[in-house]
Write a protein that binds this DNA or RNA. Structure first.
Lengths: 223, 223
DNA sequence: TTGTCGGCCGATCGCCGACAA
DNA sequence: TTGTCGGCGATCGGCCGACAA
């Protein structure tokens, strides 16, 4: 996946360290994020390991959830010094194509009723192709692609009093196909070329109470 | 799964050897039935192995396809003699509950149109609960269970001129939920207790041309 | 500006008997 | 006896502007 498109869909809160930068790897934290119970046995695990980021793969699963695979190479501990100029290296974004994006969290009306989507004016005017406003009810069909390259067709219309932008025909199919519910977010991305992408960001399942997998780390003294 | 119910759904063409009976296991045939290419490497594999059936598990997958796991214990080759009285052993059907079943292959009308199912008269009279024929349009609701124990509700009505049995309300949901198409079969099973089950048998995907996985067996001389 | 609602129209679903194989 | 069809009524999906937050 294109890193810039990936970041647009993942959202601004997600940061990925640059390649060749130095990071600390925390085995304990990694284990607690795992779905199951990680058993290190009697192996003595250090609390953190200094590593260098050697490769990053920006990916998306079959449910359009984006994630990244980050390859870490452990460094000798004496490499830890104040000279961390690894950060100056190119993150691959300087020569990348310009893109703009807009994210909206789905309301009840967007996901349940009527099969339509209320398009915020700013999104329609900065992301979507321009409409011919001379018509009494301007509309067009747009065909954004998802992260897998599959394109969807939406009817984009500007109507009502007061006037507003809506996606009608095609939107309901998209919601059902992606199994979206109120609270999930959609991201519209426009490349400089005019190509438009649509990504989704599902609402967190457990607000205010992450799944607890009480592993050994909670029962032992921290090392 | 109950062996008798399993056999009713699998159909009369399917035979399972009795427990403790002696059978030949053909590694070549097994390998050619596998989905992928089985690589025996340089291992020398006999053409057939005399085995004893030590256990059978009657099962159904999530798509209601029935299958059996048969545990084979290899025997020494000198056990192969004319005395194969293992077959006299109980197959577990003598003391089983009596059950009757009826199988019908779905027509276009059963699967596509109108959402109804034409019930053959014999099936309605021998499997379904009896209707009160004194009413002008006799009907009832029946709740057969599938192989997983999930029960479905069908409206069974006797109507039309000439009169015929039909399943209406509920049938369409069942067809969609099980993803049935014309050519698939449904099996109605009635236990002596009056409990009714419904199984499905999907049409073979490749009539007249099984999938070929040209493995090493086709390129070597038979051993 | 935009989230939700009621109205309303057309498409589809699904129940029916009429046939005919 | 039963597979397919046309009819048709009920339901649902989905497009609309009215309102109000």
């Amino acid at each position: 996946l294109d890193p810039q498109l990936w970041h647009a869909i993942a959202g601004g809160l997600v940061q990925i360290p640059p390649i060749n930068s130095k990071v600390f790897y925390f085995p304990q934290g990694h284990a607690e994020h795992a779905k199951g119970d990680v058993d290190f046995g009697n192996t003595r695990i250090p609390a953190f390991i200094l590593c260098k980021v050697s490769a990053i793969r920006y990916m998306a699963d079959t449910e359009d959830e984006v994630f990244a695979k980050i390859r870490l190479v452990p460094l000798k501990s004496d490499d830890l010094d104040v000279d961390d100029d690894g950060y100056v290296l190119n993150n691959g974004t300087e020569n990348a194509e310009k893109m703009t994006s807009f994210t909206k969290t789905l309301t009840q009306s967007d996901s349940n009723n009527g099969g339509g989507f209320s398009v915020p004016r700013y999104c329609a005017e900065t992301i979507f192709p321009p409409l011919d406003y001379s018509a009494p009810m301007p509309f067009q069909f747009m065909n954004p692609k998802d992260v897998h390259g599959k394109s969807y067709t939406f009817r984009h219309i500007y109507r009502g009093t007061p006037r507003r932008h809506l996606l009608t025909t095609g939107w309901s199919d998209f919601v059902n196909h992606k199994k979206l519910v109120a609270g999930d977010s959609v991201v519209f991305v426009r490349l400089e070329s005019g190509d438009i992408f649509i990504g989704i960001r599902r609402a967190k399942k457990c607000i205010g109470g992450a799944h607890e997998f009480p592993g050994r780390w909670n029962q032992q003294r921290g090392n």
